[in-house]
Amino acid sequence: MTADVNKTDEPDEAPTPAAGPEAIKAIPVRHYGRYVSAVIAVALLASIIYAFSQGKINWDAVPEYFFDDRIINGVGQTLLLTVLSMAIGVVGGITLAVMRLSKNPVVSSIAWGYIWFFRGTPVLVQLIVWFNLGLVFEYINLGPIYKDYWSSFMTPLLTALLGLGLNEAAYMAEICRAGLLSVDEGQTEASHALGMSHTKTLRRIVIPQAMRVIVPPTGNEVINMLKTTSLVSVVQFYELFRQAQDIGQTSGAPVEMYFLAAAWYLILTSVLSIGQYYLERYYARGSSRNLPPTPLQKIKSGVFSLRRPKGVTA
């Protein structure tokens, strides 16, 4: 009603507030330093690539073996090992973190000792110890359930999993502890005041909030783990690195196969980084008013903003 009255009364005044002041048209600052440094960087990169292409390296061997069955199998084994070891690491890490924060002095000391030992010794040594544990324990005897020689019980996969997973748990424990400590104490109090148990409080209230702090460094750990799996060739586990090495020894292109492995590691870590982005986005819900757009949404909005002026003029 009132809008109608205004319109009919003052038809001339309406466009004035809509126009507003003119948009600023200024000449932007020229960043000549940027152009120069970009040219230098590109030139350096090109010369490095050129040097490698001219070196005594048989580049044709890389594409030849890139999708070799053994390599693909190695990639699969590397991924399997990464996922399983990280699973052990995350579950173990959360358990150890909760143990370290426990009021029970026995429990927190055990966790402290575990982290002290597994973080303080090289993972390569740990792998070799697991591999040679048959020197200490001749048999594994779980009563009626299972009994076997240690050497046949400890397959390369199991050795690799224990070596990598238990070592990772020690690192994850510290990451998780930082996460748990980052959650406001008022959250625990509110949850307890509602009658929720310690376990429920942890699982439903504290851990989901701690994940925001835990996920980014964990993504880092996953990428680290992916590359660390290359160490398990010492316990006779055939993953990407070991397969590439073997092919290199038989095909007469040893260095080329290391480049091939490196390329595969780079592809895998790139894929993992994308996964990490989405995981972080998921755990950010509720903490920020607007979630950052996904890359797909960014592309879409980019397309729309390009289209919009067209629509206006047409």
Binding site: G186, H192, G195, S287
Partner: peptide, 19 residues
Amino acid sequence: ALKRRDIGMVFQRFNLFPH
């Protein structure tokens, strides 16, 4: 915990679960 079920508490800083 069982006894706390019957007692509601409201805090100065709300302490809602943000997630």
